[in-house]
Simulated scan of single mutants.
Amino acid sequence: MTASPITLGDNLTTSQLGFGGMALTPVYGAVEPADALATLHHAIDVGVTFIDTANVYGGGSNEQLIAAVLRDRRAEVQLATKFGITGNPAAGDRGVRGDRDYVRQCIDESLQRLGTDTVDLYYLHRLDPNTPIEDTVAAMAELVTEGKVRHLGLSEVTAAELRRAVAVHPIAAVQSEWSIWSRDVESNVVPAAAELGVGFVPYAPLGRGFLTGTVTADTISSNDIRNHFPRFDDGSIDTNRAAVAAIQTVADAVGATAAQVSLAWLRHKGSDFGLPVVSIPGTRKQHRIDENVSSLDVDLSAAQVAELDSIAGLVSGERSAVASWVSSGRE
Rank of each mutant, 00 (worst) to 15 (best):
G20P: 03
N223M: 08
R241P: 01
S327Q: 13
G213I: 02
A245K: 09
G9W: 05
A193S: 12
A30I: 06
Y203Q: 10
Y28V: 01
A259T: 07
T239N: 06
F210E: 04
Q260G: 04
D238F: 07
I171H: 14
A172L: 10
R288D: 14
V198A: 07
Y122I: 00
I247H: 03
L127R: 14
Q304Y: 05
S110P: 15
S327K: 05
V250F: 05
D128W: 09
T283K: 11
S222F: 00
L40Q: 10
D233S: 14
A165G: 14
L300P: 09
W178A: 03
D299I: 06
N11F: 10
T81M: 09
V46R: 15
L37F: 00
V137W: 05
E307G: 03
A138K: 08
Q105C: 12
Q16Y: 12
V27S: 12
V322F: 10
N227S: 08
Y28R: 06
L65T: 09
D108H: 15
S182K: 09
V189Y: 02
S155C: 15
V46W: 15
D117K: 13
P129D: 14
A139S: 06
S316T: 13
A264T: 06
E109I: 13
A167E: 01
V322H: 12
T86K: 07
R284E: 15
R288L: 09
E307Q: 10
L196P: 05
A253M: 01
G87Y: 10
V326D: 07
L12P: 11
P191T: 14
N11Q: 13
R330E: 13
D93Q: 04
N292W: 13
G317N: 06
A246G: 01
I107C: 04
H228P: 01
P230A: 06
G270V: 00
L127S: 15
P276C: 04
G282V: 04
G270W: 06
I180V: 15
S179H: 09
V69P: 09
N227L: 03
S301Q: 01
A173Q: 03
T145C: 06
G270S: 01
A91C: 08
I66V: 14
Q175A: 05
V46T: 08
D218V: 03
K82D: 08
P281M: 08
G98L: 15
N227V: 00
R241L: 11
Q304N: 00
N240D: 15
L154A: 12
S310E: 12
A165T: 02
L308G: 05
D290Q: 14
A259H: 11
V261A: 02
A34S: 14
Y123T: 05
W325M: 09
L308M: 07
D99I: 01
V250K: 01
Y203P: 02
G153R: 14
E318S: 12
K285R: 09
A312C: 00
V174D: 03
D10L: 02
V278P: 02
G282P: 07
T145Q: 14
T2V: 09
I289L: 15
Q286M: 08
N88C: 03
T219Q: 06
T212V: 04
F83N: 10
G29E: 00
V185L: 07
D309I: 04
A75K: 13
L121R: 08
T257S: 15
Q260D: 07
A303V: 00
G18D: 08
R164A: 13
P89D: 12
S328W: 08
L124E: 02
